[in-house]
Amino acid sequence: MVLFTFGQSNSANHGVGKYQPEHQVYNYFEGRLYPSSDPLIGATGYGASVWNRLADKLIDEKITTKVTLVPIGVGGVEIAAWAKGGYLYDKLTQTIAQLKEQGLIPDYILWHQGETDNIKNTSKEEYIRQFETIREAFRSQGIESPIGIAIASYHPECIDSEDGNDSQIREAQQALCKKYSDLFIGPDTDKLNKALHRPDGVHFSHIGLDAHADGWVKAIKKVR
């Protein structure tokens, strides 16, 4: 199974600690495969990611026998950075083109992003519009893999909204999955908002990362 993963810090290596997969898990970077471990090559941060844990769990569940991760997440970015016209759009399209050229087609594309757009007060309509250009980056190159969208907006700097979540971002993520049959809802990580999940208020502990990974396993099982 090949998993293409991106978004902002919680899609990258900004979690607490480091995790070493127990099974056959690989990290793709610039045309080569490496034995996978935290921190993943290709994403920002020097700590732990959710993806190695997810890979082990998918293998434990006998959904696959090995996993290749293609991680390009970047900490602190808004959705506009990945969308057409954004400074990460070329990184996205070039990675897609390279994978296609090498015949390494993702089975699932997994997106976790929204916290920065909570801070920026991005509207539901704008978030949807921006993500549609991200979706089209894959579809225009013939990559039809299902795209999972985590429900993610929680940020402790936004607790004035009562719970730190952003209804506009959450509604946009849900609306995208209703609008397009090739998109599916991932885990609702806004619910992982306790100190045991996020010791710094933003990034996940090992408990939070395990719960995050469990959420992706459930989501993938629903669309298989």
Score class of each variant (00 low, 15 high):
F29D: 04
E30P: 08
P35A: 06
S36M: 10
S36P: 09
S37N: 02
S37G: 06
S37C: 11
D38V: 06
P39K: 04
I41M: 13
G42S: 06
G47I: 01
G47Q: 01
G47R: 07
G47V: 03
A48W: 01
S49V: 05
N52R: 02
A55G: 08
A55M: 08
K62R: 10
I63V: 03
T65V: 02
K66V: 00
K66D: 10
V67H: 01
L69P: 06
L69E: 05
P71W: 00
P71I: 04
I72H: 03
I72K: 06
G75L: 12
G75E: 10
G75C: 13
G75Q: 10
G76W: 03
V77W: 00
I79D: 06
I79M: 14
I79Y: 01
A83M: 02
G86M: 10
L88F: 14
K91M: 15
K91V: 15
T93Y: 09
Q94T: 15
T95W: 10
L99V: 08
L99E: 00
E101K: 15
Q102I: 04
P106C: 08
D107C: 08
Y108C: 01
Y108N: 05
W111N: 11
G114M: 03
E115F: 09
T116W: 01
T116V: 13
T122H: 03
S123A: 09
S123E: 13
S123C: 11
S123N: 07
K124I: 02
E125Q: 12
Y127L: 15
Y127V: 11
Y127M: 14
R129Y: 10
R129K: 15
T133G: 07
R135W: 02
R135I: 13
A137I: 07
Q141Y: 04
